[in-house]
């Protein structure tokens, strides 16, 4: 007997769930109807990210690293589906390798980016890196998967949570990645994916007072408007390089310096 295959409805990924846009809107991309996120979806995503932040930031670095390895495992098992959503097998492999590379940094950041500082007084003075909070990410248009993963991994590995606006023209890779994220051990809300128009979602996230940093890598050259909006709560505005680097992680870190009296 013949059967009709169940076709996938492409939805958002917010707080570990796959809701349609609150507005009910969709737009067409890659021959599919994809949810077109609204202002309120962005609000819900930030709320989910804020809710997930304390627990994710409070997890041990070793644990965060393990969870990212697990994400790489899940991407590996979905490699075939992921390949179809991007430029192919090679891009998937690069994306998985990138997750693993950043996973390894989870418990090495304090050694490299922190340290004890020489001060002229009877104090033990040390600096430790801490996550910034909720980070909005405007992911690059291309490559759809590698570009996305290269921006998410350095944000979350240190304990930040992310609200990501995916590639506008090639959103399916992100939605395929969401399936891998949902089955990895990343707590709900650590990564939230919004498909839709960047010109609509970017300014909302840039102006949102509960977003602590915004990655404008995918915004193209003109980011003045976003930077002005981001200034209201002094958000960090980050423009990423294309290579993997610990400095991509440190861009989303804050340094906490402690003065501790010695000999008392």
């Amino acid at each position: 007997m013949s059967r009709i295959a169940v076709r996938k409805t492409y939805k958002l990924y917010i707080g570990g769930k796959f809701p349609r846009s609150e507005s009910g809107r969709t737009y067409e991309a890659e021959g599919q109807n994809v949810a077109r996120a609204s202002r309120k979806d962005a609000r819900d995503a930030v709320q989910a990210a804020r809710g997930a932040f304390p627990k994710w930031a409070g997890a041990t670095p070793y644990n965060r690293g393990q969870v990212l390895y697990r994400l790489a495992e899940m991407m590996e098992t979905r490699a075939a589906d992921l390949s179809r959503s991007c430029s192919g097998r090679r891009e998937v492999e690069r994306a998985i390798d990138r997750v693993v590379w950043y996973a390894g940094w989870a418990d090495k950041l304090p050694q490299v980016l922190g340290g004890s500082n020489p001060v002229a007084g009877p104090y033990f003075n040390f600096t430790a890196p801490e996550p910034t909070g909720v980070v909005a990410v405007l992911a690059p248009e291309l490559p759809p998967l590698e570009g996305l993963v290269s921006r998410i991994a350095p944000v979350i590995v240190s304990g930040n949570t992310a609200v990501v606006v995916t590639s506008e023209t090639r959103p399916l890779a992100a939605l395929e990645l969401a399936e891998a994220i949902a089955t990895s051990d990343l707590p709900d809300g650590v990564v939230n994916l919004l498909t839709g128009y960047r010109s609509e979602l970017g300014p909302i996230l840039a102006a949102h007072m509960d977003v602590n940093a915004i990655d404008v890598t995918g915004a193209g050259g003109e980011t003045t408007e976003l930077e002005i909006l981001a200034a209201d709560n002094v958000k960090r505005v980050i423009r990423a390089g294309s290579e993997q680097s610990p400095w991509e992680i440190s861009a989303f870190l804050e340094s906490k310096t402690v003065w501790h009296p010695v000999g008392v």
């Binding site: 609000r43 930030v46 909302i204 102006a207 949102h208 007072m209 509960d210 909006l229 209201d232 709560n233």
Partner: peptide
């Protein structure tokens, strides 16, 4: 103001 607020403030 038109922008979403944060409990931090």
């Amino acid at each position: 103001t038109g922008s979403y607020q944060s409990g931090d403030y």
